[in-house]
C-alpha cells in the first residue's frame, strides 16, 4: 500500500501500561477519517480524464490514487472537499457535488 488505511481495530489505552514508552508511536497510524469535514465531493469523469495526474500532484491531502489501471480514484475517507483538483483539472474532468448534509 502506498498510503495508510484507518486502523479499525485500534483500542484507545485504558490503563497506564497500555501507553507507549516516551512519546513514540508507530508512524502512519490513522484512527479516524476526515470525511465529515467535506460539504462537497470531487467526482472524476473517467471519460474526460486524460490521466495527466495534475490533480494527484497538487492535492494537499494526497487522496487521489491511481489504483485502477489507467484511471484515478479518490479516497473519500480523507478527502476534505477543498476543490483544488476540480479547479486545476485542465480537462474539466472533475466536478464538485454537494454532499447534501
Amino acid at each position: 500500500m502506498n498510503y495508510p488505511l484507518r486502523q479499525n481495530s485500534f483500542k484507545p489505552p485504558e490503563k497506564l501500561a497500555d501507553y507507549p514508552v516516551g512519546t513514540a508511536f508507530p508512524a502512519g497510524h490513522l484512527v479516524d477519517t476526515n470525511a465529515s469535514w467535506r460539504s462537497r465531493r470531487p467526482v472524476i469523469d473517467a471519460e474526460k480524464c486524460s490521466n495527466c495526474r495534475i490533480c494527484w500532484l497538487i492535492c494537499p491531502d494526497g487522496v487521489i490514487h491511481n489504483t485502477t489501471p489507467g484511471g484515478l480514484e479518490i479516497d473519500y475517507d480523507y478527502c476534505k472537499g477543498c476543490g483544488i483538483c476540480a479547479k486545476e483539472c485542465r480537462q474539466n474532468a472533475i466536478h464538485m457535488e454537494n454532499e447534501g448534509i
Binding site: Y3, G62, Y78
Partner: peptide, 13 residues
C-alpha cells in the same frame, strides 16, 4: 506514488 503525509488535520486547501 507513496504518501508520507496522509490523513492529517490540515485545513482544506
Amino acid at each position: 506514488d507513496r504518501e508520507f503525509f496522509y490523513g492529517h488535520k490540515g485545513c482544506p486547501g
